[in-house]
């Protein structure tokens, strides 16, 4: 039995992907679909747009989205409910402690203290929120393309 299409399910978990739409974010939704002939599940990806007027979601975040009772536009069918896991700012679900990769930030700080802290080392408390390098040195919030035309203007997203 095939699953319902992602666009018909009331609540979904999606990964935010780069998009040019204003006031809305694009989400990649991965679901498993049963192949009746092989009796095996295969991943299937679908893309949906969700209403996000305050730009809560950033590229890579895992977000809970809800189906709107009525479509806002032809594209926007969902609404952002909650940002569950912001990318690059993980919290351990068991201890509620902040993590970096597979290590707790407390442990890293304790190790640094033992070996001798440096004044110019990276400090989590002083760090500004994500996005302060957007369009300056970090161009990952938009999709890049291969440069196909030289018109004399600067093309920050051209590779």
């Amino acid at each position: 039995m095939a699953l319902h299409a992602a666009s018909k399910t009331s609540m979904l978990l999606g990964v935010c992907v780069p998009s040019l739409k204003r006031g809305a974010s694009k989400f990649k939704i991965k679901r498993l679909e049963l192949d009746m002939n092989l009796n095996m599940y295969f991943p299937k990806q679908e893309y949906v747009y969700a209403h996000d007027p305050s730009n809560l979601c950033k590229t890579g975040d895992i977000v809970l989205i809800e189906l709107l009772p009525k479509k806002l536009t032809q594209l926007i069918t969902h609404e952002v409910k909650e940002v569950l896991y912001p990318m690059g700012d993980m919290t351990c679900p068991l201890t509620n402690k902040k993590m970096t990769g597979i290590k707790y930030r407390d442990h890293i700080a304790a190790v640094n203290k033992v070996y001798g802290e440096r004044p110019n080392a990276y400090n989590y408390e002083k760090a500004p929120p994500r996005g302060w390098q957007e369009d300056k040195k970090d161009f990952s919030h938009r999709e890049t393309y291969i440069k196909y035309h030289e018109d004399g203007t600067e093309q920050p997203y051209g590779v």
Binding site: G60, P86, M87, G88, D89, M90, T100, G101, Y122, Y124, A127, P128, P129, R130, W132, Q133, K137, D138, S140
Partner: peptide, 14 residues
Amino acid sequence: LRKEDYKKFEWLLE
């Protein structure tokens, strides 16, 4: 690094 720790990634770029 961007996936693991976004704030450190931005600091390092700077």
